[in-house]
Design a protein around this nucleic acid. Structure first.
Length: 719
DNA sequence: ACACCTCGAGTTCT
DNA sequence: CTCGAGGTGT
């Protein structure tokens, strides 16, 4: 069977995406890594032979973790910590003040200990809270009366990957990525190809020296690589940081060697037999003397004001440097003070990272389109001329609703300002009025749904959004079925966006009930479906029949009803039929369900079409009753967290993201997604979000690390 | 009536 | 992450 290269490329692209996702999303690869590699190789070869067919979204263009490249884990004996962030001058000052207060408190405590013997009484706590002491307000100088921070080292924050190099008796024996800070991956062979990293240190080097630094791709190397890609008709790489990451994770170090990676060293980990140094700046000088690459832009200053000047200049300098930076780092220079300040569960108190504000770029707003959500909500989004901003190319961004479009005053044809909100989500900030063409008409919200039925889009009184109310709108149906199969609903693996679309187009599925009547013999005949993938799909669909009542309710796609409210209804009524028959009043009696939700639920079950779907699901054998066994399990646990509200940010070992919430709820606690004044404690795991942390600190809510959380769960007491 | 919490939806790119 | 909107308590 011969296929055109175009078809085969499309097929390979689909397969690679699919398996890549399988691998990444739940660590459940369906094919051996070698097969995956073969798919990738074939695609690369085809694309090389037919450069005109290379699509910008081809998987070959994506840089990232390659599933076959599984590197050996390496434990960091001294953990590689991340840094707390400051975003403006005030926060930098606040950091310095906190550090000073801490030092003052420690000093007072020592003084108290010494003087109690002499009968003097001095409370350390009183001193700690006394914010008006001159030391914490005034400039920080080496000469000033104690306490003091001494010198501050200001470094650039390089946009690359943190790595740790281990030298034993002067020889580079191991290099590892940062990983989660405690365990990274062995990339020794790749690091050995970097020209700036010495394999051997001069005579007299310490027995053990772990050097931490950032591997980055200089802009010149990045541009050269892309020029080469272009010459070969291959797609460009997105940005230096990701390309550096991809280059370091090459299985074949000879590829890494061609990428021109470089490194800056900025600290040390485990050291045995090193020279005695008293300051961080002396450490850097020592590393430099060993021939390790230390950034020459680093300076030591005597005051927070001067540190701010350095930090403030970063924004201007970022475009003049031959490598990318994303901020600056300020560190207390004296190592004795560093030790005294110590670290929180995630970051040292003696250093702070200043993050540059998100980069803004301008681009053309080509058009404004509208997407239809699973409940018929029409969301306008900007179609942009592709623009590189904040580390990736953006061509779409949500505009939320009609009022937002108006408020931002953006019109197709405008030049608009684009940035990344929270470093990830593209955001249209507004339009550049000076560049608006004359008489550019205002954008009008389309009157009809973009689907082939062209039904009207209606904005009801009091709503911000427009809706398509046509019950058989194919856009809504697609959304509903995806929603039904989604993780928080029936959680049907192997039934994702692409397959849902395919099955709808083929007429296999016309409502969610049809999922349970799929003809697998027909599916087996489809391209891209083998024996195994059909069996997996069938098994996943079968398994979904046992999902809880709450999840089934979520899957019904009832307006205003999400995970939480579905659970409330499931607990209160225990059976689909009881909910179906309940009056609006009865529904609204449930705590947490108000009149609007009650009405919405009632209305859903009034519809004949919906009732038929429910009957299809019943006939298919789906679970319609509240599974009390999980309740029983919960009851058997001690309700250690009763009355507590525990918010979690970041991943915790031994839990999935949903699992933490379930564990908290099973012990009688609540676990909402955001921090508020009612929050009992915030648990910080791996890769925590900055906003929750900030809010918790602002509100003075206790912040727990993983071990403290474990203790809390077991004993119910805050450390 | 108002403030504050929560929840849900939609969204981007790797 | 951000916006909008429902629910609850004051």
């Amino acid at each position: 069977m011969t296929k055109g290269p175009e078809e085969r490329i499309a097929e390979l692209t689909r397969l690679i995406r699919y398996h890549d996702q399988r691998y990444h999303s739940d660590d459940a690869s369906e094919i051996p890594d070698a097969d995956f590699d073969q798919l990738k190789r074939e695609l690369l070869e085809l694309e090389a032979a037919h450069p005109e067919l290379v699509r910008p979204d081809s998987p070959t263009q994506m840089v990232g973790a390659d599933p076959s490249t599984l590197f050996t884990p390496v434990e960091h004996r001294v953990p590689m910590m991340s840094l707390d962030n400051a975003f403006d001058r005030d926060e930098l000052n606040a950091w310095a003040e906190r550090a000073l207060r801490r030092l003052a408190a420690a000093r007072a405590r020592r003084a108290a200990e010494e003087s109690t013997a002499q009968g003097m009484l001095l409370s350390a706590d009183d001193q700690e809270d006394d914010e008006d002491r001159p030391e914490s307000r005034g400039a920080i100088g080496l000469e000033g009366s104690p306490p003091e921070l001494g010198g501050l080292v200001c470094e650039l924050k390089y946009d690359g990957l943190a790595v740790s190099l281990r030298y034993e008796n002067g020889r580079l024996v191991q290099a590892a990525t940062r990983g989660n800070g405690r365990v990274g991956e062995d990339i020794t062979a790749n690091i050995l190809t970097l020209k700036s990293v010495p394999h051997l240190l001069p005579a007299g080097a310490p027995q053990v020296l772990e050097v931490r630094g950032e591997v980055y791709m200089p802009l010149a190397a990045f541009d050269a690589l892309n020029a080469q890609q272009e010459a070969e008709g291959k797609p460009r790489y997105a940005n230096p940081r990701n390309t550096a990451a991809g280059s370091l994770r090459q299985k074949d170090p000879t590829i890494t060697a061609t990428r021109g990676l470089s490194m800056w060293c900025y600290s040390v980990g485990e050291v045995h037999g090193g020279p005695g140094v008293a300051t961080h700046s002396a450490t850097l000088e020592y590393l430099d003397s060993l021939g390790l690459p230390v950034n020459p832009e680093t300076v030591t200053v005597d005051s927070v004001n001067e540190a701010w000047e350095f930090v403030d200049q970063c924004e201007d300098r970022r475009h003049d440097l031959p490598y990318e930076i994303d901020g600056a780092v300020v560190k207390v220079d004296r190592l004795d003070l560093q030790r005294e300040l110590g670290a929180t569960s995630r970051a040292p108190r003696w250093a702070i990272a200043y993050k540059l504000p998100p980069e803004e770029r301008t681009t053309k707003l080509l058009d404004i389109h509208v997407s239809i959500g699973s409940k018929g909500k029409a969301t306008p989004f900007a179609v942009l001329e592709p623009v590189f901003v904040g580390g990736s190319t953006v061509e779409m961004a949500t505009l939320h609703n009609q009022d937002q479009v108006k408020a931002k005053d953006v019109r197709p044809g405008d030049t608009v300002v684009v940035r990344k909100a929270g470093d990830v989500i593209p955001e249209v900030v507004g339009s550049v009025l000076a560049e608006r063409p004359d008489e550019l008409p205002e954008w009008e919200f389309p009157a009809i749904c973009p689907c082939p039925h062209h039904q009207p889009l209606v904005r009801q009184e009091g709503d911000a959004a427009h809706y398509c109310f046509f019950p058989r709108c194919p856009e809504q149906l697609r959304g509903w079925i995806e929603h039904f199969a989604a993780r928080n609903a029936l959680d049907i693996e192997h039934l994702g966006e692409q397959r849902v679309s395919l099955f709808i187009d083929l007429g296999f599925i016309a409502d969610v009930g049809d999922i349970y009547a799929l003809d697998y013999d027909l599916i087996r005949e489809l391209e891209g479906f083998g024996e195994l993938s059909v069996a997996n799909l069938a098994a996943a669909i079968e398994a979904s029949k046992q999902q809880s009542l709450a999840r089934l309710l979520v899957g019904l796609n009832i307006r205003h009803l999400g995970d939480t409210s579905s659970e409330l209804l499931a607990d209160a009524f225990g059976h689909v039929d009881r909910i179906m028959e309940a009056s609006v009043e009865a529904l609204a009696e449930v705590d947490g369900i108000g009149p609007i939700m009650a009405e919405s639920v009632h209305e859903f079950f009034q519809s004949e079409v919906n009732r038929e779907i429910v009957e299809k699901l019943r006939a298919a054998g789906l679970n319609f009753i509240q599974d009390t066994s999980s309740d029983a399990a919960a009851e058997s646990l001690f309700q250690t967290l009763a009355g507590m509200t525990i918010v979690v940010t970041g991943g915790l070992e031994g839990y999935s993201r949903d699992g933490v919430g379930a564990a908290i709820k099973a012990r009688g606690g609540k676990s909402p997604g955001s921090v508020s004044s009612k929050t009992t404690a915030l648990v910080v795991g791996e890769n925590p979000g900055a906003s929750k942390l900030e809010k918790a600190e602002k509100l003075g809510i206790p912040v727990l690390n993983e071990a403290q959380f474990q203790e809390l769960i077991e004993t119910g007491t805050l450390p």
